[in-house]
């Protein structure tokens, strides 16, 4: 019932991970795998695009905490974009916004990583 798919793209040196489906218990392997992918590892900035995500539960939040730990460990920056207002609120409530800068659109996220605009 829970399905999760993802796709990795690049915009210059920035890796963009398009998430699709549910972010829940069975998302951990694919998402951590994408973050550790040899094509993604050199990117110092990774953008998670949530446009295709309709459901995030507490297991998905835990997974995002693990991703934050991973990017801190590998000295990278994690950004997010295209989250619904509800999940933006959840991100703020649980404290994820302290570690993941959230942008309205993917373009905003990419611009936010330009020199002088990074957090």
């Amino acid at each position: 019932m829970n399905q999760h798919r993802l796709r990795v793209r690049h915009s210059g040196a920035i890796a963009i991970i398009d998430l699709e489906g549910d972010l829940s218990h069975d998302s951990e392997g694919p998402l951590l795998g994408a973050l550790r992918d040899p094509h993604v590892l050199p990117s110092s900035v990774v953008v998670l695009n949530f446009a295709g995500v309709g459901y995030i539960n507490s297991a998905g939040i835990s997974l995002l905490v693990s991703l934050v730990a991973e990017v801190i460990h590998t000295e990278r920056t994690l950004l997010a974009c295209c989250l619904s207002p509800h999940y933006r609120k959840i991100f703020r409530m649980v404290g994820l916004t302290e570690y993941i800068q959230v942008f309205e659109t993917e373009l905003d996220a990419l611009r936010g990583t330009e020199p002088g605009k990074a957090r």
Partner: peptide, 24 residues
């Protein structure tokens, strides 16, 4: 209220958000 710093730093299990979300 879970301590995200403790979870990010691995001092606490990354799980344990459910009841906090429900009550909130």
């Amino acid at each position: 209220r879970p301590h995200i710093l403790e979870k990010v730093e691995g001092h606490e299990d990354s799980r344990g958000w459910g009841m906090f979300l429900i009550e909130s």
